[in-house]
């Protein structure tokens, strides 16, 4: 069974998404801030990490940078989620290309459930 780590400070979103991904046959581990997300990535070694960008403690970009700089963890695919409006996000995306391309995919919030499942399955099947 594939293990997915979902890191988001919105508990409601986490719980609902957990149910959704479990229905697709994934094991889902939850973390509610960036630091916890990083710790759980190290401890649980998920097959995929879904990272919200705007979180307390450590934001999603920073978590992604640390993950991708770690030789042992950098192969784990990362999807970034953001509620920042899409165009703004794309500009930030281009500006910080070096940093952002390290994430394997990005999805703008509000996330369409079907879309999330499709992207998750895509990345998991590539591995």
């Amino acid at each position: 069974m594939k293990k997915v780590l979902l890191v988001d400070d919105d508990v409601d979103f986490c719980e609902a998404t957990k149910l959704l991904l479990e229905s697709k046959g994934c094991e889902v581990v939850l973390a509610y801030d960036g630091k916890e997300g990083l710790e759980k990535t190290r401890a649980a070694r998920p097959d995929l990490v879904i990272l919200d960008v705007m979180m307390p403690e450590m934001n999603g970009y920073d978590v992604c940078v640390v993950l991708k700089a770690d030789q042992k963890l950098k192969k784990i695919p990362v999807i970034l989620l953001t509620a920042v409006d899409q165009a703004l996000f794309k500009t930030t995306y281009t500006k910080t290309m070096g940093l952002m391309t390290e994430a394997d995919d990005y999805i703008a919030k509000p996330v369409e459930p079907g879309e999330l499942v499709r992207r998750v399955e895509d990345l998991l099947s590539k591995k």
Binding site: D10, D12, F13, E15, T17, L20, A83, D85, P110, P113
Partner: peptide, 27 residues
């Protein structure tokens, strides 16, 4: 306007996910 919109997006995101999950019979 921008602040309000952003503040609306997060809860809407949760709401959509919650409804979808219940609707799909996952709960």
């Amino acid at each position: 306007l921008s602040m309000v919109s952003h503040e609306l997006k997060s809860p809407l995101s949760s709401l959509l996910m919650q409804i979808s999950v219940v609707l799909d019979g996952l709960a």
